[in-house]
């Protein structure tokens, strides 16, 4: 399965002289199959039939180690509500956080424009074989609360 997420172009509020830029992805639902993501800035939509993880136009990459199916009784994979005085560890399905360093990609993308259009392509191990494997696989792959672009001086 391959999905493309195209975010609306915006003008990032950057100060000159940043030494590092991270694209943060937060609130990621990992209750699905593992997948990999390629991040593009200001590039034409990548051809999903010719994805190349070594594509030099790619600004960054990330991967999610997922958990496809619940293996417990009913409710096993529902996140429990926190209690007072609760020292137990958080649920393994607590939404994940990823930060991907995109410093060079961001500089390249904003070399001759002040607008940034983010495209993220994600794919699981099945690729075009998804249909053969049945419908147990979850979609969308990249289910998250949002992105954040952060720079550091």
């Amino acid at each position: 399965m391959i999905e493309i997420y195209e975010y609306k172009a915006f003008k990032p509020k950057l100060r000159p002289g940043y030494v590092r830029a991270d694209l943060e992805i937060y609130g990621i639902d990992t209750f699905r199959q593992s997948y990999s993501g390629l991040i593009y800035f200001n590039t034409p939509r990548p051809d999903p039939k010719n994805l190349n993880p070594d594509d030099p136009a790619c600004a960054g990459q990330f991967a999610i180690f997922g958990h496809l199916e619940c293996t417990g009784d009913d409710g096993h994979c529902h996140m429990r509500a926190p209690q007072r005085f609760d020292t137990r560890r958080s649920s393994p399905l607590t939404p994940a956080f990823k930060r991907v360093e995109v410093t060079e990609g961001l500089r390249r993308a904003l070399d001759d424009t002040d607008e940034l259009a983010i495209t993220i392509v994600v794919a699981d191990e099945l690729g075009s074989k998804a249909a053969e494997e049945g419908s147990d696989y979850k979609t969308p792959l990249l289910k998250c609360k949002g992105l954040q672009l952060v720079t550091f001086a």
């Binding site: 391959i2 593992s34 997948y35 990999s36 993501g37 390629l38 994805l51 993880p53 070594d54 990459q61 991967a63 392509v121 994600v122 794919a123 699981d124 191990e125 099945l126 690729g127 074989k129």
Partner: peptide, 9 residues
């Protein structure tokens, strides 16, 4: 199933 994800390396 090594290498079956086209976006992974």
């Amino acid at each position: 199933r090594p290498g079956q994800n086209p976006a992974a390396r």
